[in-house]
Simulated scan of single mutants.
Amino acid sequence: MKYSNEESFQLSDELKNYEFTFEMLNETVIASRLEFNLGANGTNPVWIGNVRVEHITGTPVNEDAPKQPLPNGNHVYNGTLDQGMDRLMFWNCSAGDTAATASVSEDARELHIVFYDRRNI
């Protein structure tokens, strides 16, 4: 099943960033995949990194709404800390008078939380 049209990019020997925005043409299939077809353009190495697919239009996701378990039975949404612009989609950090700032290192994909007392702000 095809989700979108293909996009071609001209590769070079310099590091570049590429973006491709597409509209989902079919319903989501949990076993779908993202393919990078590099063709027969020689034997030079190609590095692909920091790839992400994000929902950016349409009905917004309510991160705080009750959720069903994931297809694998997991109750932790975004346990891999890779969803959303700050990689913290579905995560909230606070309790009573205590609040927190959270961040995720893109390289290590580790959650860092700093707690503070709201009364001292």
Rank of each mutant, 00 (worst) to 15 (best):
G58R: 02
N26P: 00
L11T: 01
E63Q: 05
N92F: 09
N92T: 15
G58P: 00
L81N: 00
L15F: 11
D86F: 05
E35H: 07
L25V: 03
I113W: 04
R33L: 06
V46N: 03
E19D: 12
F115Q: 07
N62W: 03
D97L: 09
A100C: 09
T101E: 12
T28C: 09
G49V: 05
P66G: 01
W47K: 13
G79M: 04
A102I: 03
V76R: 04
L34W: 04
G84Q: 00
Y18R: 07
T43E: 10
Y77F: 14
D107L: 11
P45A: 05
M1S: 12
A108E: 15
E7R: 13
D107A: 11
G79K: 02
P69I: 04
E106D: 15
N72S: 14
A31P: 00
N72T: 14
I48W: 02
A102M: 08
E7C: 08
D13N: 15
N62D: 13
R52M: 06
N41E: 08
R119N: 15
L11F: 06
V51C: 10
D64M: 08
A99M: 09
L15P: 01
V61K: 03
S32V: 03
M89W: 01
N44G: 10
L88S: 01
T101H: 10
N72M: 07
L88Y: 01
Q68M: 15
H112L: 10
N74Y: 04
D82T: 06
D97Q: 13
N62K: 09
M85L: 10
L111C: 02
S8K: 12
T101F: 12
G84F: 00
E106G: 06
Y18A: 07
S32G: 12
M24S: 15
P71Q: 03
R119D: 06
A65W: 01
S12T: 15
S4A: 14
D107H: 11
M24F: 15
A95W: 07
D13T: 12
T21M: 06
A31T: 14
T59I: 15
F36K: 03
A99G: 14
T98Y: 10
D107C: 07
E54M: 15
I113V: 13
